[in-house]
Amino acid sequence: MPILTRAELEARIGSDDIVRLADRDAPAGEDAGAVQAAIDDAEHEVLAYVRKATSAPIPDPAPPVLKRLVAVIARYNLWRRDVPVEHPAYVAYKDAIRELQAIAAGQVALPFDDGGSPVVSLGAGIGWAPPRVMTDAALAGMGP
Rank of each mutant, 00 (worst) to 15 (best):
R6K: 14
D114Y: 06
V120A: 15
Y93I: 00
D16P: 02
A71D: 08
A7N: 12
V91Q: 13
I58C: 05
G116K: 05
A104H: 06
G143I: 09
L4A: 06
S55L: 13
D114W: 08
D82E: 09
A38Y: 00
L100E: 00
L21I: 01
Y49C: 02
E99D: 11
V70Y: 01
V70W: 02
A105Y: 00
V133K: 13
A38S: 04
P111T: 02
L69V: 05
P111C: 05
I126Y: 08
K67P: 06
E43Y: 01
V46N: 02
E86P: 04
G127S: 14
P27T: 02
R98W: 00
G123L: 03
A26P: 15
I18N: 01
A56V: 05
M1W: 06
R20M: 12
V83Y: 00
V65H: 03
G125W: 05
P118T: 04
R75D: 13
P88W: 08
D25I: 10
L69E: 00
G14I: 04
D40G: 06
G29F: 00
A74G: 06
P84F: 01
A96C: 08
E43Q: 14
P59N: 01
R24P: 04
I18G: 02
A89G: 04
S121F: 08
P59C: 00
L4H: 03
G123H: 05
E8N: 04
G116D: 02
D114P: 03
V19W: 05
A105Q: 11
A71N: 09
D17K: 15
A22M: 03
S121G: 12
D114Q: 07
D41C: 10
A71K: 11
V91L: 14
P130A: 14
A109N: 13
V46S: 02
E99F: 12
